[in-house]
Design a protein around this nucleic acid. Structure first.
Lengths: 338, 338
DNA sequence: TTGTAAGCGTTATCAG
DNA sequence: CTGATAACGCTTACAA
């Protein structure tokens, strides 16, 4: 018994249809010239054999692999997973396929991820965490891998950068607290130190400073619910107990709220106002009804994907600014802020 | 100015290092025989040029693309995204790369996803939702695409199937309610009709029947929090208000709990006991403390990935049974069930 | 419109 | 150990 071939190729189809391999290729290349007769013979043979064009071979020659890498850490987190979904959906819609590469928080692992992307000749990599080293970013450039950096610090040539109005949003959070009559302000954040997180923290602090207010700022652990719990416990035990906490992330906000309610028997927003960031699904759950800033997920995804479809840029780095609108719910005293 | 090459190839490296292309290839092939001298010349040249092996070309000839497709719907959902993370992490650990293909709930879209997987010559596809049509499953077989079906109905040849003890768990849920003194039982589920969901529902119903109890079973909408909310509102308005609700999913359970607490002012577990399924992160949040069944995510992922590493099976379909252990928290009257 | 032939970047085979 | 040379499955001039 002969060794079974791993998959059916254009040659097989050509043989069965009684045409040349080129004819088969043309049949599956949009806008190539094939007679209706040949085409239907080919289609029939392909169907019978179960032929599928080999994209790898096609990509080898056309340089259009259709592969886009999505690189990031904590991809199972509510906001991240939602962004991932939006990204991959849109990628599929324009005939691309996403390869998913998990990283830990180290920049080193991002570098390795990008190398993987290059090895698979991805057309682009969308980076959600960490910051590629300059040398790696060069490597990508030399290998024709375009970079999309989402909420990262600064990009090198030939890449696009998508950023949010983090600082501005933070300022709005502060004025909202003030308008609600809160006077003892605090910030709860993780110590991940990612650009967006520090922008939010610093934006809040700066605006408070401008208003002559002092804010206690607590940093703890990774960015997640558990850290929020811990942050709540630290903040709410203070002699000057805060009556408003700006959390740099909804996950942290949920933790803070739960700590306040279940461990300090505080009621929200009567005893404590909370504002988060991201607008994850849980923020709108009955138990939280968290006032927060909505990540413009679809806009982020479409900006990224549209850019890929565009002409190859000429080396300049493009920056797209998107805004996270405030989503008013019930966690700030005094209702809808109007 | 000459047209810039899209990426640096082994030929470039060979030229710079003053060796043959074959030498370059060997340098990057584990366990090939190259002298230390050539190797270091090659490495140096590769480094200088920023060379990365082209996996597409490598896969073309070796038939080992290293690509594995992960196919599923609702991948941004807590349980799904966690499974996705576990899967991709493990895949990376064994040198594979995951391509992610979103589907909607239709079987048709699963079929299309599998065709994409074939076109990229994935070594395997891990299917999380929907059920590939027999003809497609054949197509996969003919193209050497191995199938891993997670919680799907039944597999065809050459594939592996991973299943959970859904029915058994459901029975355990019922006896737990009984032991807690609950008498008016209900099931809350979506009308997605996926195999695991119906297995849980039917398992619960069957056991109730065996005990001579009648159970009201409510089905509504897609599988998610909002549906849980709606289900809670339907169930808790009944003349014989349930004192125990088995939810086929944690997301539904969270919705049911929120409806009970915030819309009917019921307290859990005093007025109502709830059991869920999946053990998503939110189940352990202070606001829920939901008793549930833990999806053995890591075990699922490792079973799937280990199978890929194994010898090519000889056409028989393998079934792996995993168990979801009960995770006791505070949503059932009478504490930890012991 | 069609077939032939030359690549694309690798690895595998086979002499040297 | 090394270098030609032939695949791998495909697209794309170039001729016919």
């Amino acid at each position: 018994m002969p060794v079974r071939k791993a998959s059916v190729s254009a040659k097989d189809v050509a043989a069965r249809a009684g045409v040349s391999r080129a004819a088969v290729s043309r049949t599956f290349t949009p806008g190539a010239s094939v007679s209706e007769e040949t085409r239907s013979k080919v289609i029939a043979a392909a169907e019978a054999l179960g032929y599928q064009v080999n994209q790898l071979a096609r990509g080898l020659i056309s340089r259009k692999t259709g592969i886009v890498a999505v690189v990031g850490a904590d991809l199972a987190t509510p906001y991240r997973s939602e962004l991932l979904r939006a990204l991959t959906e849109r990628l599929q819609a324009v005939g691309r396929v996403a390869i998913l590469i998990n990283t830990d928080r180290s920049d080193r692992s991002v570098d390795m991820a990008l190398q993987t992307a290059i090895r698979y000749r991805a057309e682009a990599a969308i980076v959600l965490s960490g910051m590629p080293d300059k040398s790696i970013s060069d490597l990508c450039h030399r290998n024709g891998l375009r970079l999309v950096l989402i909420n990262r610090d600064d990009a090198h040539s030939g890449s696009i950068q998508i950023r949010l109005n983090d600082a501005e949003a933070a300022r709005l959070a502060l004025t909202s607290f003030l308008r609600a009559g809160c006077r003892t302000l605090a910030v709860a954040t993780s110590n991940a130190g990612t650009p967006s997180l520090v922008a939010r923290e610093e934006g809040f602090l700066a605006e408070a400073h401008r208003s002559g207010l002092s804010v206690t700022c607590e940093r703890f652990g990774p960015t997640g619910y558990e850290s929020g719990l811990a942050l709540g416990e630290r903040l709410l035990v203070l002699p000057e107990r805060p009556d408003a906490i700006f959390c740099t992330t909804d996950l942290i906000a949920c933790g803070v709220m739960d700590a306040a309610r279940h461990r300090f028997s505080l009621s929200i927003p009567d005893n404590l106002s909370v504002i988060g960031f991201d607008d994850i699904p849980q923020a709108s759950w009955d138990s939280y009804q968290l006032t927060t800033f909505r990540q413009p997920i679809e806009e982020i995804a479409s900006s990224a994907v549209d850019w890929l479809a565009e002409e190859e840029g000429d080396g300049e780095v493009r920056v797209i600014h998107l805004t996270a609108p405030m989503s008013w719910r019930q966690s700030v005293r005094g209702g809808n802020g109007k």
